[in-house]
Amino acid sequence: MSSLTVVDLGTGNLHSVAKAVEYAGEGVSVRVSSDPAVIRRADRVILPGQGAVGTWFKALGAGELRNAIDEVIKSRPLLGICLGLQALFDFSDEDEGTPGLGVLPGRVMRFSPPAQTNGLKVPHMGWNNVNQSQQHPIWKGIGDGERFYFVHSYYAVATHQEDEIGGTVYGHSFTSAAASGGVAAVQFHPEKSASAGIQLLRNFLAWSP
């Protein structure tokens, strides 16, 4: 039986992520954990998160947990969700500037307030289109332009076009899905995106980079 660990950094709705993965993949043993040993043993890892990126990195720390994540990034399929996507980039403007994991070159910035954008509300909340800028195994069976559920106030822009596999427009275009090697990441919430989201999780479970 294949195993998957949802990394628990105390932020976001981890229960939903775990439930959606269980629903998507038959016979997958899902654990929610912050134990480095459990994370190292998993065949696949999901890096989720909501809220503030500074709090997220504080929970990650600089010790064994961080080492385990760095190790998994190099050796196993990993899916970042929401803050999990933002954390994989070089740098976020949030919390007076927060360095990221540096897996994906690029920067994370805040959406401009509605007064400067003709009324676009922040957070960007709801179902928006994801344009598949590149083919990738996680898009299997999902239509180009499919809607997924977003909720975020900061957005990432990948420096290199080859790292972006999905783009979304909210006032301007941003990177809503990225991939590099065995790492894939999405800004939206597949666990809250009905059947398209379940399909994406199923694709991640089947992915062998």
């Binding site: 709801g126 179902w127 928006n128 809607r147 977003f150 427009v169 909210y170």
Partner: peptide, 8 residues
């Protein structure tokens, strides 16, 4: 194409 208005 863009953010959809939600029905709840």
């Amino acid at each position: 194409m863009g953010l959809a208005k939600r029905v709840i």
